[in-house]
Computed example of a mutant assay.
Amino acid sequence: MTYLLFCIGLVALFLGGEYLVRGASNIARHFNLSPMVIGLTIVGFGTSAPELLVSIQAAMAGQPAIAIGNVLGSNVANILLILGTSAAIAALMIPLRKVWRDLGVMVVATAALWIMLLDGSISRLDGVILLAGLAVFMGMAFFLGKEEPDLDAEPPSSMPISIAQTIGGLIVLVIGARLLVDSATEIARTFGVSEAVIGLTVVAVGTSLPELATSVIAAFRKQTEIAVGNVIGSNIFNIFSILGITALILPIPADPRFASADMPWVAGTALLLVLFAVLLKGIPRLAGVALLAIYAGYVALIMA
């Protein structure tokens, strides 16, 4: 039964991702927002919903290692696994002139989280600071994300249909992620895997599958700006929103290993994405394969 729920969750994720990308793209066009902005905000926030639910539930259940490991592992998986897979399907363009602020916010958020973890907990004050950062990021994204409408483009679906597609896709994504995470965690525990490792791998990958489904589908549809924006936005939301809200509800104790062993990976992958954007203006297909190889090495290392 556990394996059946795992498969159902996987199918639900990809169906939800298809409708989310379609609906969000149409909403962006109605408001003359660029696909990058809609990926950074609506899609990025929506696909981070599973991480939020899992982290809050884990913190309240007395499992802080899963709450923090979920976010750190998801941010690593977003860049190495998700962008790697998407780039292997279709080379991703990263328009630096559109995303330099957002890449900067991602790096600052990562650095702030690392500093917060050094004292062994994420306090309620830390949560307030993280949520303030989220408010600033959202304001920047919407006010600076307008673009001229393309008069020659095919008219988007009506707003009610677009909203229904987006909300429906999000609901299916969350349900699918919940089924997959629960079943995958149960399978992992039968092998005696620790909570920290479960959070960094099984739960992190499981809650990142909405991002994977959304970015892969966007890559197949040649909407690479949504694929890239989804990952950048998700990484920012994971830190600012998920840990911010969770810490505001309940301060989160942090295992020392997160600051010493795991944050270097989170920071390193964030800087790697910045280098791709600055030096290559995107992620070629061969680089996508290399990212997948690095992710395989990362998982092998922390599972050892």
Rank of each mutant, 00 (worst) to 15 (best):
L4Q: 03
G9L: 11
L10Q: 06
L10W: 03
V11C: 08
V11E: 09
Y19V: 05
L20F: 08
G23P: 04
S25Y: 00
A28W: 03
S34M: 02
M36C: 10
G39V: 02
I42H: 05
G44L: 04
S48T: 07
S48E: 00
S48K: 03
L53D: 05
Q57W: 08
A59V: 13
A61L: 14
A65W: 12
A65G: 14
A67R: 04
I82D: 05
A87H: 03
I89P: 03
A90N: 15
I94F: 06
P95N: 06
P95G: 00
K98A: 09
V99E: 12
G104Q: 14
V107D: 11
A111R: 12
I115H: 04
G120T: 01
I122Y: 08
I122L: 07
G127L: 05
G127F: 08
G127D: 08
I129P: 11
L131F: 08
L131A: 08
L134Q: 01
V136T: 11
V136M: 13
G139V: 02
F142Q: 03
L144C: 12
K146Q: 15
P149G: 06
D150I: 02
M159I: 12
M159G: 05
M159E: 07
P160I: 05
I161H: 11
S162Y: 10
T166F: 09
T166V: 10
G168M: 00
I171E: 08
V172C: 06
A177T: 06
T185C: 13
F191A: 14
F191T: 13
F191K: 14
T201Y: 04
V202D: 06
V205Y: 11
E211C: 04
L212P: 01
A218H: 04
T224D: 06
I226N: 02
G233L: 01
G233Q: 01
S234N: 04
I236P: 05
I236T: 04
N238K: 01
I242E: 03
L248T: 12
R257V: 13
F258D: 02
S260Q: 12
S260Y: 09
V266Q: 06
A267V: 13
T269V: 15
T269Q: 14
A270F: 14
L272S: 07
V274K: 11
V274D: 12
V274G: 10
A277K: 12
V278W: 15
I283W: 10
A290D: 09
L292R: 10
Y295E: 10
Y295V: 12
V299G: 13
M303H: 09
A304D: 12
